[in-house]
Each structure stands twice: as C-alpha cells, then as structure tokens.
C-alpha cells in the first residue's frame, strides 16, 4: 500500500476559506473560495506548484461549485451575485442577482440545475441547459445557511431549524412547464437544537447529515416511512475539555462531507479536528491529528482519493474583528485505500 501523505497547497488563500470544491470526472483540480474576494484554482497532484490561477471577484466569495466540467464553475458572493466562471479564460458571467449576499451554490449535473441560496431568504433556480432562460426565484421561510444536493434531492437548511427538501426532477419539470411555483418535496424540523452549520447528502441518495454550531451531527433518511425515520440519530462531537478543567468547550461543526465511494462521512469542526464516521454502523472510524486552526471547509475528490481541508481561524462569539490572513491554509490528505472505508455494522 502506498504510504498516504498529507501536504499543504501553496500559496494559500490570502484570507479565510469559505468553500472548497473538487472538479468532476476524476480531475485533480480544486477550487477554493475565499473572503479575500478571490477564487483560487489548484492542482492537488502538484504539491510544489499547485496554484493554477486566481479569479478576482468584486466582494468576498461565499461559495463555489463546479459545473459540467473542470473548466466551468459557479460562485456566490457578498456582492449578491451568482457568477459563472470560465476557469480557462477567467471570463465571468452574471447568472442572477439576489437582494442580499448569495450564500450557497449547488449544481446538479444530471439535471442541469444550478441552485443558489441567499440571505434575502430565497433560492434562485437556473436552467443551465438553456442560458437564455430567466432564473426562477423561490421564497424561503428562513435565511439559508447550508445547501447540499444528492442525486435526486436538494436539502436547504435555514434559520429557525427549518429544513426544506426539494426534488430535482420537479425543478427540471418546472423549467419545461414554464411555471414558477415550486412545490417543496418535504419540510422538516432540524433534529438539532441549534443553528444548522452544514449539510451533506449521502452519495447513495438515501439520506443526509446535518451539523450545528453546538458540536453535534444528525443523520437522517429521506424515505418517509416510520422505520426509516426511526433510524435517524444525532451524536455529540467536536468538543474539547476546557483548559481550566471546567466542562467542555463546544465547537461548531463547520464542514460535513460524504465519501463518494465508501459512503462514510467526515466532519470538520472549530476544534481543529477532522473525524471520519460510519453513518450505518454509527461508529467513528478515525480522528485525525489536530490541524493548525479551525476547519472551515472540506471536500473529497470525486474518486475519493483525496480529502481537501480548509483551515483558518474560527469566528468566535463576541469577536470584534476577524482576519484569516496568514493563518489560512489548505491541506490535502491522500487517503489510504481503506482509510475511509466502513468496518461494517457490528
């Protein structure tokens, strides 16, 4: 077995990382969205000269996702705009504009649907297959904080512990029908008591995981039967004993990602640790050594061989100022063959 390694991409982004994305189709291209208003493209297979290009935005970039191929990306930013970025030429096209910062973008290649979520409490649905079409605005009952797509569904986590689930096929049908009213597939109340921090969907399309600011992760299933709903559970994680010995410090779980091959998932928290979990067996597979700072974002490569971890200082309650400058880094972990493989239910 080839020795698995961990290395840092250089140069790192100039400020805090908001999102990471790996290219589709087994490419080793990694995108990093940063608060320094730039989008960074790296090639993780070249540890020494990994930076390919940067793409200047008008405002901090809050999220990024790839389009149909490794040269097409979408970004959401503080300037309210959802952009399409041609990664080869650097050309940027405005896809739509919200009435507040755009927080998340997700793209479903199977449906050609690009979804952006904004703090103006709305989703914009873009039909990528028809560039001339106008995006459809869908109002939300709360401010969205995290969005994730499974092969057939989109999960939107909002303030007030509301979770809306939409069906991607319904969205696609909406485009062809010309209507603008999207019927949501299901609304759920979050299983977690605190503000949702991250959402990730199982690659198997069976369910999703959510995490909150209060060191906890919940795993739920889409299937709406009593048996499936009875299977959902939540657990505590990303807590560290307080230095004064009095109780624990509870950190937010900032990042959740399912492994595309093994179906296990990783969580990254404000406690600077990353853990691998087996959702089926309800077991922790691994806890990595502490990273230099809080984990802001994480992503597995599509073949599951790499785990990219965005590290920068976490934002703490009561913090007056913030800067991730000089303290931000992206670490690539080359996973061993069975590193993220579940051990099977015991």
């Amino acid at each position: 077995m080839a020795p698995a390694t961990q290395y840092e991409l250089s140069p790192p982004p100039g400020d805090a990382i908001s999102a990471l994305a790996f290219a589709p189709n087994g490419s080793t291209k990694l995108l990093a969205a940063s608060w320094d208003k730039k989008l960074y493209a790296y090639d993780v297979a070249k540890p020494d000269s990994s930076l390919i290009k940067t793409y200047e935005h008008r405002a901090p970039v809050l999220d990024v996702c790839f389009g149909d191929n490794e040269n097409e990306a979408y970004t959401a930013g503080m300037d309210w705009v959802v952009n399409k970025v041609n990664l080869e030429t650097g050309e940027m096209t405005e896809m739509s504009k919200h009435a507040a910062p755009a927080r998340c973008v997700v793209y479903s290649p199977a449906h050609g649907v690009l979804i952006s979520a904004s703090w103006d409490c709305s989703l914009n649905l873009h039909n990528v297959r028809d560039p001339s079409s106008t995006p459809i605005r869908i109002p939300l009952p709360g401010k969205p904080h995290a969005v994730a797509a499974s092969p057939s569904k989109v999960v939107v986590a909002m303030t007030g512990r509301i979770i809306n689930i939409y069906d991607l096929q319904t969205i696609q049908n909406l485009f062809s029908s010309g209507q603008t009213e999207l019927k949501l597939w299901q609304q759920r109340e979050s299983s977690l008591r605190y503000l949702t921090r991250a959402v990730a969907c199982m690659p198997s399309d069976a369910g999703y995981a959510t995490s909150s600011i209060e060191g906890r992760v919940a795993v739920e299933w889409f299937e709406d039967t009593a048996e499936s709903q009875a299977r959902k559970y939540a657990f505590k994680c990303h807590r560290q004993p307080a230095p004064d010995g009095d109780g624990d410090i509870v950190y937010p779980v900032n990042a959740l990602e399912f492994h595309p091959v093994h179906g296990t998932f990783a969580s990254g928290g404000g406690d600077s640790t990353v853990a691998l979990w087996d959702a089926e067996a309800k077991r922790r597979l691994k806890q990595y050594q502490k990273f230099p700072d809080s984990i802001a974002a994480m992503v597995f490569s599509k073949d599951g061989k790499y785990l990219a971890i965005g590290v920068c200082p976490g934002f703490e309650t009561g913090q007056e100022d913030y800067s991730g400058e000089g303290k931000t880094s992206i670490l690539i972990r080359e996973l061993g063959d069975n590193e993220a493989k579940g051990k099977g239910a015991k």
Partner: peptide, 14 residues
C-alpha cells in the same frame, strides 16, 4: 460546555 459560537439565529458568516 461553553459554546465557542452560541448565536442561534445569526451564522458566523453573517
């Protein structure tokens, strides 16, 4: 435990 971030309404990004 003491929460590192405890605002139940507004996210750290906001």
């Amino acid at each position: 435990g003491r929460m590192f971030y405890d605002d139940a309404e507004i996210s750290p990004e906001e």
